[in-house]
Simulated scan of single mutants.
Amino acid sequence: MSAHATARRAELFDQLVALFLTDGFAHLTLDAIAARLRCSKSTLYTLADSKDALVEAATVHFFRDATDQVETALIGVTDNRITAYLTAVGAALRPASEQFMTDLDSLAPARAVYEKNTAIAARRVQQLISEDSDLPERAAVFAGDVAASTMVRIQSRDVVHRTGLGDADAYLELARLLTGLRS
């Protein structure tokens, strides 16, 4: 693939992610997506062989970029890394509309991408708690487990349904809870 084709492909994925984050995707047909991106359906088929595969690929693209943003936000941070990490997770999820999050939960391949990224983030939070807290080892492991459980509940939409907190805000509240911050 040429550099131009690779750049065009990345640009299309960026546009696709922006569209999905704003409007969701369940109601969009491939024709509607092509029209919104001002490309042909055959161009979309160069990205994926079906709408579901396109959504999954866009979801992977979104979470790859989000992971890069979150890890970049930690560079040079020496104090309150747990807060910095969870705040960055919340910021990365902020552009995602409620419709996107609902649609994401309804499509198994896309939900699996979110679940995988949540599991990775939960392990990262557990690592940060173990490294950065003054808690005894057992308490740090427990706090990490509580954080991981909460992150799974955020991802599974349980938190938004029970509290009204969207994913981005829930991550900020989790940071406050774990670090004893006041609002």
Rank of each mutant, 00 (worst) to 15 (best):
Q126Y: 01
A58Q: 04
E71R: 10
V141R: 13
T6A: 13
L104G: 06
V160M: 14
V159A: 04
R124P: 04
G180R: 04
S97C: 10
D68H: 14
A121G: 12
D79H: 10
A3F: 13
T78R: 11
A121M: 09
A7I: 12
S183V: 11
T87S: 10
R8T: 14
D158I: 13
A121T: 01
L178N: 06
T59I: 08
S106C: 12
S42H: 11
L178E: 06
L19I: 10
V141I: 14
D68S: 14
L19H: 06
D103A: 11
A57V: 06
Y45C: 08
L93P: 02
A175Q: 01
Q15N: 10
R8A: 15
A53Y: 09
F20Q: 01
A148Q: 04
T46N: 12
L181H: 12
T163H: 05
D14H: 09
V159D: 02
V89R: 00
E131P: 04
A175C: 03
E137L: 10
A53R: 15
R123I: 01
Q126M: 10
R138D: 13
R182W: 07
R124Y: 11
G164A: 05
H161G: 15
S42R: 13
E131Y: 06
A73P: 02
A147W: 01
V159W: 04
R182A: 13
F25I: 04
K51G: 05
Q155R: 13
A34H: 07
T78C: 03
A119W: 07
A110D: 01
L135K: 08
A119Y: 08
L104T: 08
T22V: 05
A32E: 15
H4P: 02
R8W: 07
S149I: 02
A18S: 15
D134M: 03
K116N: 11
S50F: 12
L86G: 02
T67P: 01
F13I: 02
A88R: 01
Q15T: 05
A57Y: 03
D145V: 04
E137C: 04
R38N: 12
L30Y: 02
L165R: 03
A108C: 03
A139D: 15
F62N: 00
R123N: 15
A96P: 07
K116T: 12
A18E: 15
V152K: 11
H27M: 06
D79Q: 10
L16V: 11
V152G: 06
Q127R: 13
A96D: 04
A96E: 05
A53Q: 15
A48R: 10
P95M: 07
M101A: 13
V113Y: 01
D23T: 09
S97Y: 08
F25P: 02
S97P: 07
L104W: 09
Q15G: 14
A148P: 02
A122P: 00
L165F: 14
L28S: 10
E115Q: 12
A88D: 03
A58E: 04
V70Y: 00
M1K: 09
T102D: 14
S50T: 14
